Simulated assay, not measured.
Amino acid sequence: MYIVMFEFVVKPGARQQFLNAWAKTTQGIYLFKGSLGSRLHRDKSGAFIAYAQWPDKATWEKAADIQMSPDYEAFRENMHEALNLESTRILYEMEVETDYLQRRPFAVE
């Protein structure tokens, strides 16, 4: 399993737009691009940190070339509009060494 951690920098006043769009964008990435899902966290400073799981590094790398449905691409664009993309960054790319997280199916609404 491959893990990618992001720090999202949200524009002032765009917090709710980001949160709504992040959830739907994550669903689209799961459905169309082969991710295993993601978790969004806020650290003690208020920064948004996402932990995304992928079956392997190759699936993550190929995902950039896969289009989602028009609706999910619109959610992705809406998420990007809520972000300061110049400051948003990948914190880590990691292989899983030992895994004790419990898994359950992704709930698509």
Rank of each mutant, 00 (worst) to 15 (best):
M1N: 01
Y2E: 08
F6T: 11
F6M: 09
F6R: 03
E7P: 09
V9T: 07
V9Q: 07
V10C: 03
K11A: 09
P12T: 00
G13Y: 05
G13Q: 04
A14M: 13
R15I: 08
R15F: 02
Q16Y: 05
Q16G: 01
Q16T: 01
Q17I: 01
Q17M: 08
L19C: 10
N20C: 12
A21I: 03
A21F: 12
W22N: 00
A23V: 12
A23R: 13
K24W: 12
K24T: 05
K24C: 09
T25D: 07
T26I: 03
Q27W: 11
Q27C: 04
G28E: 09
Y30T: 02
L31I: 07
F32N: 05
K33Y: 05
L36T: 09
G37W: 10
G37V: 09
S38H: 11
R39A: 12
L40I: 08
H41G: 00
R42T: 12
K44Q: 06
S45C: 04
G46M: 01
A47D: 15
A47C: 04
F48K: 00
I49P: 02
A52E: 08
W54I: 10
P55H: 07
D56T: 06
D56W: 09
D56F: 10
K57I: 03
K57Y: 15
A58M: 05
A58H: 05
T59W: 01
T59P: 08
T59V: 00
T59L: 02
T59F: 05
T59S: 10
K62D: 11
K62N: 08
A63H: 03
A64I: 02
A64S: 08
D65P: 05
Q67K: 10
M68H: 00
S69Y: 07
P70Y: 02
P70A: 01
P70D: 07
Y72G: 14
E73R: 11
E73I: 08
E73K: 03
A74W: 06
A74V: 05
R76S: 15
E77K: 13
E77D: 15
E77N: 14
N78S: 12
M79Y: 08
M79F: 10
M79N: 15
M79P: 14
H80M: 14
H80E: 15
H80V: 12
H80G: 15
H80I: 09
E81W: 10
E81C: 03
E81P: 06
A82L: 12
A82I: 11
L83P: 13
L83H: 05
L83S: 00
N84H: 13
L85M: 09
L85T: 03
E86I: 03
E86Y: 07
E86K: 14
S87K: 12
T88G: 07
T88N: 07
R89I: 03
I90G: 07
L91T: 02
L91E: 02
L91V: 10
Y92S: 14
Y92K: 06
Y92A: 09
E93C: 11
E93Y: 13
E93G: 11
M94W: 13
M94Q: 14
E95F: 13
E95H: 03
E95V: 06
V96F: 15
T98F: 10
T98V: 04
Y100F: 11
Y100A: 04
Y100L: 02
L101C: 12
R103V: 03
R103L: 02
P105C: 08
P105D: 01
F106P: 00
F106S: 00
A107G: 09
A107V: 15
A107P: 01
V108A: 01
